[in-house]
């Protein structure tokens, strides 16, 4: 495992921890899109179907368990927790799951590396992960005051994507036959979705003003 891949996994882990920290300590999920969190839970569920059948390393299995567990835990907090759910911004978080899930599923049926069930689900999870951040970005745009933790959460997620691209470039040059168009293109699309957010995030950081996305 190269340094880009490991750093990518760690920033991904950081994003989840920042979000759980916010929800658990402040008991608030203000500014967090439940739709995005539910989509991530579905992403991990579809992708890690091989968790019991395909052992790669202890690191891999533990990380998969963390991502699965944390995504469902976050969804549970926002939907069910007595206090946390009160801060959920239902009016502004209106994105429809199906508009993302259905096209991704159809695309996975049409374009995949192998048409076995697990492969299709894996491909579906890649496509869905690429666009799962959209409800969150829409919500950020509608939210006047984005708090620091929410901003950091999205920042870490974007950093994770950018580092994974560095990882693919590194692997392409160091490993034989390492070509995965589907993974790369969906990963690139996913990273590009953060470009706008990054621009405003760095500007607010540089000018030391509160982060706000233009409507």
């Amino acid at each position: 495992m190269n340094i880009f891949r490991f750093s990518g996994d760690m920033t991904h882990l950081m994003s989840v921890l920042v979000l759980l920290l916010k929800i658990h300590t402040i008991k608030s999920c203000a500014g967090i899109s439940l739709k995005t969190q539910e989509l991530y839970a579905l992403v991990f569920l579809a992708r890690y179907l091989d968790i019991v059948t395909n052992f790669i390393s202890l690191y891999n299995t533990i990380m998969k368990l963390i991502f699965l567990g944390s995504s469902f835990m976050i969804v549970w907090y926002i939907r069910r927790h007595r206090i946390v759910r009160r801060s959920y911004d239902k009016e502004h978080d209106t994105f429809r799951h199906l508009f993302l899930v259905l096209p991704c599923f159809i695309l996975a049926l049409l374009i995949n590396e192998r048409s076995a069930f697990k492969e299709i689900m894996w491909t579906f999870s890649l496509y869905l992960e690429a666009v799962a951040i959209l409800p969150q970005l829409v919500l950020l745009q509608r939210t006047k005051n984005i708090d620091n933790l929410t901003g950091q959460y999205v920042f870490f997620l974007g950093a994770y994507r950018a580092l994974y691209i560095c990882n693919w470039i590194y692997r392409y040059f160091t490993e034989p036959h390492y070509v995965h168009w589907i993974t790369w293109i969906s990963g690139l699309v996913q990273t590009l979705l953060y470009a706008d957010f990054f621009y405003y995030y760095f500007n607010s950081w540089k000018n030391n003003v509160k982060l706000q996305l233009p409507a």
């Binding site: 891949r5 996994d9 991904h12 091989d50 395909n54 790669i56 891999n60 990380m63 998969k64 991502f67 590396e113 894996w122 994974y164 990882n167 390492y178 995965h180 993974t183």
Partner: peptide, 10 residues
Amino acid sequence: DLESEFHDEL
């Protein structure tokens, strides 16, 4: 094999 190579990322 192809499968483990393809699935070794998170």
